[in-house]
């Protein structure tokens, strides 16, 4: 399985990847993207099985990336990992077609709760 991790912070991408491994999802290919535009391009090029994306990024936000993907016909499973987890943002995420929104700071348990059933 291939997972695309999109975050403009390299440190946060490492933390997300580390947490995936700690949560037991350690046997997957990881692709990194450094903003929403890069994530959009890499979904087209790499065809991942899941996207884990930050919300607040330069060039293209995570939400704009998701909306662009859905507009282009992509149904790739998409979840947010973001420092903002307000009810308003959760609603916007769900309306745009996101499967879940994990708020930072997160733990490996949070990852398991949201990813079980999504990651084989």
């Amino acid at each position: 399985m291939k997972i695309l991790v999109a975050d403009d912070s390299r440190v946060m991408r490492q933390i997300v990847i580390r947490t995936l491994r700690q949560a037991g999802y350690d046997d997957h290919d990881i692709v990194e993207a450094e903003d929403g535009r890069d994530a959009y391009d890499k979904v087209q090029a790499e065809n991942p099985d899941l996207v884990l994306s930050d919300w607040n990024m330069p060039n293209m936000t995570g939400l704009e990336c998701l909306q662009a993907l859905r507009s282009s016909g992509s149904a790739v499973p998409f979840g947010f990992v973001t420092s903002e987890g307000s009810a308003d943002m959760r609603e916007k995420a769900a309306d745009a077609g996101a499967l879940f929104l994990i708020a930072k700071p997160f733990t490996e348990e949070t990852f398991r709760e949201n990813l079980d059933g999504v990651i084989a």
Partner: peptide
């Protein structure tokens, strides 16, 4: 990158506890 991301996480959660 790292110090900014800590501020981002703390700030995001402070924002969530403020009126929107």
């Amino acid at each position: 990158d790292a110090f900014g991301e800590i501020a981002n996480v703390v700030g995001g959660n402070v924002k969530a506890s403020l009126p929107g």
